[in-house]
C-alpha cells in the first residue's frame, strides 16, 4: 500500500523520530515500497488460522516474590545523560 507524506509525518510523530524535510520524500517512497512487498500477505487464505505470536507452544514460568536486586543506582546511572540527586533529568514534563 502506498502511503502519503502526511501518514509518514504522523507515524514519525507516533514513533518520536524526527525526519528532516530533505528526507521525508525518500522515506515516504521507501516505506511505500516496503508496504508493497508486505501487501503480498493479503493474497494468503488465513480463514480459521489462529495468529501465532511465539514459535514454540510454551507457557510462562513465574518467579517467586523475593527481592533479588539491591541498589545499583551508581552503576546504572553511570551512562545517564543527565542526573541530579539520583534523578534522571529531562526537560520539564507537562501533564
Amino acid at each position: 500500500m502506498a502511503v502519503d507524506r502526511g501518514t509518514i509525518e504522523k507515524l514519525a510523530e507516533l514513533a518520536r523520530i524526527q525526519i528532516s524535510e530533505a528526507n521525508i520524500d525518500d522515506v515516504t517512497t521507501s516505506i511505500s515500497e516496503i508496504l508493497g512487498l508486505v501487501d503480498q500477505l493479503q493474497a494468503a487464505n488465513t480463514d480459521n488460522v489462529a495468529p501465532m505470536a511465539h514459535p514454540l507452544d510454551a507457557v510462562q514460568r513465574l518467579r517467586a516474590d523475593q527481592v533479588t536486586e539491591n541498589n545499583q543506582r551508581e552503576d546504572l546511572q553511570a551512562c545517564a545523560p543527565e542526573v541530579e540527586d539520583g534523578l534522571f533529568l529531562v526537560p520539564q514534563v507537562i501533564d
Binding site: V38, L41, Q42, A44, T46, V49, P51, M52, A53
Partner: peptide
C-alpha cells in the same frame, strides 16, 4: 490487515 495477518501466515 498487517500484524494479525502476518501472525496467521506465520502459523501457515
Amino acid at each position: 490487515a498487517y500484524y494479525n495477518k502476518a501472525q496467521q501466515v506465520r502459523r501457515l
